[in-house]
Amino acid sequence: MSRHASARSSRNHAKTRIFKAFDQYGINPLFKVGAIQPTKGRGGARNVRGLSTEALTERQCRELVEAMQHAERIGHPFNRFLTITWERSGIDPRDNARAAGRFIKMASDWMRARGCRLRWAWVQESSNRFGAHVHMLLHVSPDLEPLFGPMPTRWVRRIVEAGYVGKTTQSQRVPYPLNAGDLASLDAYRAEVAGKVHYMLKAAPAALEARLGLLGAGPKPWGKSCRVFGKRLAIWQGWRTDPGG
């Protein structure tokens, strides 16, 4: 074998090992380098447009559960659940995470102008019925609730411009009791928000459901898979050390 043929063979073996490593973690290595576009703004760092994954990792699942618990602990419980079906309104699936990041920036700016910091988390998915979409949990201060209601649809309209289709934005409250002594309502809230998190994590290995203490928290079975591009899950920056306030 010539020296050049030997070098080519070594490179091919190296590529095979790399591709197997990518495949093990559900990452698609077959993307064009020129298509990689790190997303600017908020909504999660390292949001790379060209990379795809098929399922959530255990670490991502644990982080979302911990963020849910931490948000309540610091007095900013997730009390608003949104689903935004970006592809329904013409957003390319490769830009699903980027659109979510733009939404988070708009919401954060709106909150900041009213003296609040936005705590949030989102997971992106894809399905035959809805196309590429995201599920979000946010905290909305009770005094801002009346003003917040119409804002998600307005922000989404600005992002998709003329392509907005009805019901692209779906928003619902997850009521948190204002009275700390209302234990029955507190238990009901915790069950409901855990159900939302369970729903957001359905593209996770089925074995994790019991391991994370979420077995039976929601009706949808885990173990699904769906191809998404860019960051699959994002949580507000610095959430682990956020003291609240």
Rank of each mutant, 00 (worst) to 15 (best):
Met1Tyr: 03
Ser2Gln: 03
Ser2Val: 06
His4Ile: 14
His4Cys: 06
Arg8Lys: 10
Ser9Gly: 05
Ser10Phe: 06
Asn12Lys: 15
His13Cys: 04
Phe19His: 15
Phe19Thr: 12
Ala21Glu: 08
Phe22Ile: 11
Asp23Glu: 14
Gln24Lys: 15
Tyr25Met: 04
Leu30Val: 01
Gly34Ser: 07
Ala35Gln: 14
Ala35Asp: 15
Ala35Pro: 00
Pro38Val: 03
Lys40Trp: 00
Gly41Met: 04
Gly43Lys: 15
Gly43Thr: 04
Gly44Met: 13
Gly44Asn: 03
Ala45Ser: 15
Gly50Pro: 06
Gly50Phe: 09
Ser52Glu: 06
Ser52Gly: 10
Ala55Met: 14
Ala55Lys: 09
Thr57Val: 09
Cys61Ile: 11
Cys61Met: 04
Glu63Ile: 03
Val65Gln: 05
Met68Pro: 04
Ile74Phe: 11
Gly75Tyr: 06
His76Lys: 09
Phe78Tyr: 15
Asn79Gly: 00
Asn79Cys: 11
Phe81Ala: 15
Phe81Tyr: 15
Ile84Pro: 05
Thr85Ser: 14
Thr85Phe: 00
Trp86Cys: 11
Arg88Thr: 05
Ile91Arg: 08
Ile91Ala: 06
Pro93Asn: 09
Arg94Cys: 05
Arg94Phe: 05
Asp95Thr: 02
Ala97Ser: 14
Ala97Gly: 07
Arg98His: 11
Ala100Asp: 06
Arg102Pro: 00
Phe103Thr: 07
Ile104Val: 11
Lys105Ala: 14
Met106Tyr: 13
Ala107Met: 15
Met111Cys: 09
Arg117Leu: 07
Arg119Ser: 10
Trp120Tyr: 13
Ala121Gln: 11
Trp122Ala: 00
Val123Ile: 12
Ser127Ala: 10
Ser127Gly: 15
Arg129Met: 01
Arg129Ile: 09
Phe130Ile: 01
Val134Leu: 04
Met136Gly: 05
Leu138Thr: 01
Pro142Leu: 06
Glu145Gln: 15
Phe148Gly: 10
Pro150Ser: 09
Pro150Gly: 10
Thr153His: 08
Trp155Met: 14
Ile159Ala: 04
Val160Trp: 12
Val160His: 10
Glu161Ser: 04
Gly166Pro: 00
Gly166Asn: 07
Gly166Thr: 10
Thr169Leu: 01
Ser171Gln: 11
Arg173Tyr: 03
Arg173Phe: 03
Pro175Ser: 02
Pro175Ile: 02
Gly181Met: 12
Ser185Ile: 09
Ser185Leu: 15
Leu186Ile: 11
Asp187Asn: 14
Ala188Thr: 13
Arg190Tyr: 01
Arg190Gly: 00
Gly195His: 06
Leu201Pro: 04
Ala206Leu: 13
Ala207His: 00
Glu209Thr: 12
Ala210Phe: 03
Leu212Lys: 10
Leu214Ser: 06
Leu215Gln: 11
Gly216His: 06
Gly218Ile: 02
Pro221Lys: 07
Pro221Met: 07
Cys226Thr: 00
Gly230Tyr: 09
Leu233Ile: 11
Leu233Asp: 11
Ala234Leu: 03
Trp236Tyr: 01
Gly238Thr: 10
Arg240Cys: 02
Arg240Met: 03
Thr241Asn: 14
Pro243Met: 08
